[in-house]
Simulated assay, not measured.
Amino acid sequence: MPYAPTNGIQLYYETHGEPGGRPMLLVMGLGAQMTLWEPDFCEMLAREGFYVIRFDNRDVGLSTKIEGGPQPDLAKALAGDHSTASYTLWDMADDAVGLLDHLGIERAHIAGASMGGMIVQCIAIRHPERVRSMTSIMSTTGNPNVGQPQPEAMAALLAPPPERREEAIEQGLRTWTTIGSPAYPADPAELRARIAADYDRCFYPEGTARQLVAILATGDRTEGLARVRVPTLVIHGEADPLVTLTGGQATAEAIPGARLLTFPGMGHDLPRALWPEFVRAIAELAREADGG
């Protein structure tokens, strides 16, 4: 089993493509396992010459669960009291850099979705020497005045965790229907199968709560992003109800020279129909960053 010791924990990871290719580290979002970077998407990147690394963040999937710390109190965190945070996104950024160390990769292209976008932003701020290019997808800067969720999306995010497998699958279907892309609806049978498979792989709502408190405890990255000089692409859905478009716009405005690429009808997911556009833009950024 491929585990990497990093930052005092163990990260589960998998790779696609040839080790001699351009390293591409993919970082997933809140409560999301690496499986949301679907193998077909990773293979599309590999065909563009990338050596793709996907992994489970701490507190999700097959990676280390951070137990024994304070019980995460979301109400306190939303009110500005972050005393129940077990870690921040800066720690999660250090986890990812430790994975690169384990793989012997000095500098990588990095891409993150949602919370993963926040984590790659932290990597670019704290470890700029490790980054060739950055792609921040459906994410935001941490500024509380931008990217805020619509009420129905916030309700889905904060719904109490289910107690049984079938309840978890039904809740997952409701959540993805709420936050997904209205112009690119997922096939219900495929969506149900994916949710069920992820549940069977790992169901750990306590970790999601700790990650959410970590997001709130990390705060606004706008000032740090202004110092980022790595080539940057910001991708965002114009119909995203969970991290609304102003989050992506603010990210692109904060980073000097960043390019903003938005898609009408895209919500808070990675619709298969748009994968060729995502891959094309990411590969173009990487070629520019690497000088060809």
Rank of each mutant, 00 (worst) to 15 (best):
Q10W: 09
Q10L: 14
L11I: 06
Y12D: 12
Y12C: 11
E14V: 00
E14L: 01
E14N: 01
T15F: 04
H16T: 13
G17H: 02
G17A: 11
G17N: 12
E18L: 13
P19N: 11
P19I: 14
R22A: 13
P23V: 02
M24I: 12
M24A: 15
L25W: 05
L25T: 03
L25K: 09
L26R: 10
L26P: 02
V27N: 01
M28F: 11
L30A: 07
G31W: 00
G31A: 05
Q33D: 11
T35L: 15
L36H: 13
W37M: 04
E38Y: 14
P39Q: 01
C42I: 04
C42M: 10
E43D: 15
M44A: 13
M44V: 01
M44W: 02
L45S: 09
A46Q: 10
A46W: 05
R47N: 10
E48D: 06
G49R: 01
F50P: 03
Y51L: 07
V52D: 05
R54W: 06
F55G: 00
F55T: 00
D56A: 07
N57I: 08
N57M: 08
R58L: 10
D59W: 10
V60P: 02
G61V: 11
G61T: 06
S63F: 05
S63K: 10
T64S: 15
K65G: 02
K65L: 08
I66L: 15
E67D: 15
G68W: 15
G68Y: 15
Q71P: 09
P72S: 10
D73H: 15
A75V: 13
K76L: 15
K76C: 07
A79F: 00
A79Q: 09
H82S: 11
S83G: 13
S83Y: 09
T84P: 13
T84W: 14
T84V: 12
S86M: 14
Y87E: 08
Y87N: 07
T88R: 14
D91I: 10
D91V: 08
D91M: 12
M92Q: 12
M92G: 04
A93G: 06
D95F: 10
D95G: 09
V97P: 00
G98I: 06
L99M: 12
L99Q: 10
L100V: 01
L100S: 01
L100I: 01
L100K: 03
L103C: 03
G104W: 09
I105M: 05
R107I: 00
R107V: 01
A113Q: 13
G117T: 03
M118A: 11
V120N: 05
C122V: 03
